[in-house]
């Protein structure tokens, strides 16, 4: 993408609130941007073979930490967010350090992270006196529901601007990693850990860095989601199913390309919304089933995702070129 087309695209996206779109369309756009941001955060590590099936844990930590600090102590999300990020870091370290130190990779790593997602979900349910358990919880509304201090914006136009900025930030971080030495070290590590260590790469540290970065973005995505929906539920924000949805969307969109995960978000959200409208809520699990089937087909036939694959030439424009130094 050229600089010009980048700015044009951003300008168009920034102009959306002035279009006076119906609330429902704003709602869908906001969801796409929030999930696009989350999926981008996941793929920052997923693209290097660090396939986490437990990123729902970080979403949950983000959403619940901020919501609970606000409800019980009146702590503003501006303080709650850094606290949530610190918690996400601690959890990433507790799970990541032993995994990386003991060379738990591939499927085994995926299984450990799968357990993580479930543990966080169960902890939220177990602390039902504080979290509302599986009934979920609602952050207390502040005044009219429009407050920078409380990070609450009932007006969709405002929330849209916030998630747009967050999403742009996420893409910027993705590209930053893509152009950094960390990418080279992670590509080397994902290929051969012993050989990487022999040329001086601190394998554990490099993996932890990328994992923590990914955890931060995802936890912040959880905050956005919670503050937008003004409702948190352990099943939608912390469990295995949301974790798998993250993986599914990122793979389908193309996790090796900056905008791939966002394309994944467009697909999953349009799919679940149209299923909801066409089929109704009786078949609530249907989108999950379709995701599953699509995922299998993609892994077999299009492992690099829609944006990452050769036949998606018309979409080529959505790729960011890779700058190579030297």
């Amino acid at each position: 993408m050229t600089r010009f087309s980048k700015f044009t695209a951003l300008f168009l996206l920034a102009a959306v609130p002035f279009l006076d779109l119906p609330d429902y369309y704003m709602h869908v756009l906001i969801l796409i941007l929030i999930w696009g941001f989350v999926y981008t955060g996941w793929s920052i590590m997923g693209r290097f073979g660090l396939v986490s099936l437990g990123h729902g844990a970080f979403l949950g930590i983000g959403g619940y930490t901020v919501g609970m600090l606000w409800n019980f102590y009146g702590i503003t999300p501006w303080l709650g967010i850094p606290i949530a990020l610190i918690l996400a870091t601690i959890v990433a370290l507790i799970v990541g350090y032993p995994c990386f130190q003991f060379r738990i990779i591939g499927h085994y790593f995926a299984l450990v992270t799968l357990a993580l997602a479930e543990v966080v979900r169960l902890v939220i349910i177990g602390m039902r006196d504080y979290t509302g358990g599986s009934l979920g919880m609602t952050p207390q509304r502040y005044g009219e529901g429009m407050s920078v201090y409380a990070f609450q914006f009932v007006e969709k136009d405002y929330f849209y601007v916030i998630v747009l900025l967050s999403w742009v930030f996420g893409i910027w971080v993705w590209n930053l990693v893509d152009g950094s030495m960390a990418r080279y070290s992670m590509e080397a590590i994902s290929d051969d850990e012993d050989a990487s260590a022999s040329v001086g790469i601190n394998v554990t540290r490099e993996k932890l860095k990328i994992t923590i970065l990914s955890a931060w973005l995802t936890a912040f995505g959880g905050v956005l989601y919670g503050q937008y929906q003004m409702y948190l539920n352990p099943d939608t924000i912390a469990g295995i199913s949301v974790s798998l949805q993250i993986v599914f969307a990122s793979i389908v969109g193309g996790m090796y390309v900056a905008l791939g995960p966002t394309v994944g978000a467009v697909i999953t959200i349009l799919l679940s919304e149209s299923l909801r409208i066409l089929v109704g809520v009786e078949l609530a699990g249907l989108d999950g089933t379709i995701y599953g089937i699509m995922l299998i087909l993609f892994i077999i036939f299009l492992p690099r995702g829609i944006l990452g694959s050769g036949w998606a030439k018309p979409l080529e424009i959505l790729r960011f070129p890779k700058d190579k130094p030297g």
Binding site: M181, Y184, S185, E187, A188, S190, D191, D192, A195, S196, V199, G200, I201, N202, G326
Partner: peptide, 17 residues
């Protein structure tokens, strides 16, 4: 490192080594 080209293979080693 198969995902890196020849020069990148050596450069990553020079940088981290």
């Amino acid at each position: 490192f198969r995902k890196l080209d020849l020069l990148e293979n050596v450069a990553v080693s020079a940088f981290f080594g």
